[in-house]
Simulated scan of single mutants.
Amino acid sequence: MKKRCTGIIVAGFASVLLTQPSLSREVSVVSAVHSEIQQAEVHNNQGVELAEQGRLAEAITAFNRAISIYPEYEHAHNNLGLALGNQNKFAEAIAAFNRAIEINPRNFETYNNLGIALGSQGKFAEAIAAFNRAIQINPNDPVSRQNLGVALWSQGKISQAVASLQKARELYAMQNNSAGIQEVGVILNQISSPAN
């Protein structure tokens, strides 16, 4: 009996020793990934600073550098899309936003950005779908509802546009965002003006 118990204990002990090296390798892999993420964040942050300075070409280079270091870095893809969109490179921006969505399909802001790029290309049906997805993820985001309203208006869906814009205005009011309330008011006035 004792030999069996000893055998079990020894076998258990041996298995712990055998798994330790692979645990160490996993920690090293995690450390390497963490290091890659940190390096990518540095380039992403540089890109944001450059974009804020209006140096979009340099920002795009920085975002691409971040992505080359860590291809799964969602924010770098999203920021790349924003920079490309600001250069009116909407097809490339859409590709960057779609990649960010593949990485994280729960980021409503990326869907909103995608919708703006699609709308800028006149692809209003696709833009509406993107804005609706953003709203499904975060029903309390006034920006997505405002953008949905504009896209619906562009499609001639006036009553739906007005409903979306009114909801956006309510959400802006809940956030005490007077600039957003004013912006929506201007759009609603444009919709109701006799020229439309």
Score class of each variant (00 low, 15 high):
87 Q>F: 01
23 L>C: 04
68 S>D: 14
60 I>K: 02
61 T>N: 09
69 I>W: 00
64 N>P: 01
49 E>A: 15
124 F>E: 09
132 N>C: 08
133 R>W: 06
42 V>M: 05
46 Q>G: 07
136 Q>K: 14
48 V>K: 05
125 A>P: 03
84 L>D: 02
46 Q>S: 09
82 L>S: 00
31 S>F: 12
36 E>H: 12
127 A>K: 00
66 A>V: 07
93 A>V: 00
120 S>I: 07
44 N>K: 02
50 L>M: 10
30 V>I: 15
68 S>T: 14
78 N>I: 04
34 H>K: 10
28 S>P: 04
138 N>V: 09
141 D>R: 10
55 R>N: 06
69 I>P: 05
118 L>V: 04
126 E>C: 07
57 A>T: 12
85 G>H: 02
113 N>S: 10
103 I>E: 05
79 N>G: 00
64 N>L: 11
126 E>V: 13
138 N>K: 11
45 N>L: 05
27 V>G: 08
28 S>W: 09
88 N>F: 11
37 I>L: 13
101 I>Q: 10
41 E>P: 01
53 Q>L: 13
89 K>N: 10
135 I>W: 04
40 A>P: 06
119 G>I: 01
70 Y>A: 14
40 A>Q: 03
141 D>E: 12
70 Y>C: 14
88 N>G: 06
57 A>I: 04
35 S>H: 13
72 E>I: 06
68 S>Y: 07
58 E>Q: 13
74 E>P: 01
75 H>F: 12
66 A>Y: 03
56 L>V: 02
71 P>F: 13
109 E>S: 15
101 I>L: 11
113 N>F: 01
52 E>F: 07
34 H>A: 15
107 N>D: 14
22 S>Y: 06
38 Q>V: 08
129 A>Q: 13
129 A>W: 03
39 Q>K: 14
41 E>Y: 07
98 N>Q: 13
106 R>T: 15
39 Q>H: 11
52 E>P: 10
139 P>M: 06
108 F>D: 14
23 L>D: 05
54 G>W: 08
21 P>T: 11
68 S>L: 14
98 N>F: 12
123 K>R: 15
45 N>W: 00
129 A>C: 12
24 S>T: 13
137 I>Y: 07
116 I>M: 00
60 I>W: 03
43 H>L: 13
40 A>Y: 03
67 I>C: 03
101 I>H: 05
69 I>T: 11
116 I>F: 01
125 A>Q: 08
98 N>I: 10
54 G>L: 06
72 E>H: 12
111 Y>W: 11
119 G>W: 03
113 N>C: 08
65 R>I: 08
29 V>T: 14
41 E>H: 02
85 G>R: 00
113 N>W: 04
140 N>E: 12
47 G>P: 03
31 S>M: 12
44 N>D: 02
134 A>G: 15
116 I>G: 03
26 E>G: 08
29 V>W: 14
91 A>Y: 06
120 S>T: 08
109 E>G: 04
115 G>F: 01
25 R>V: 08
34 H>W: 07
92 E>Q: 10
105 P>G: 14
137 I>M: 11
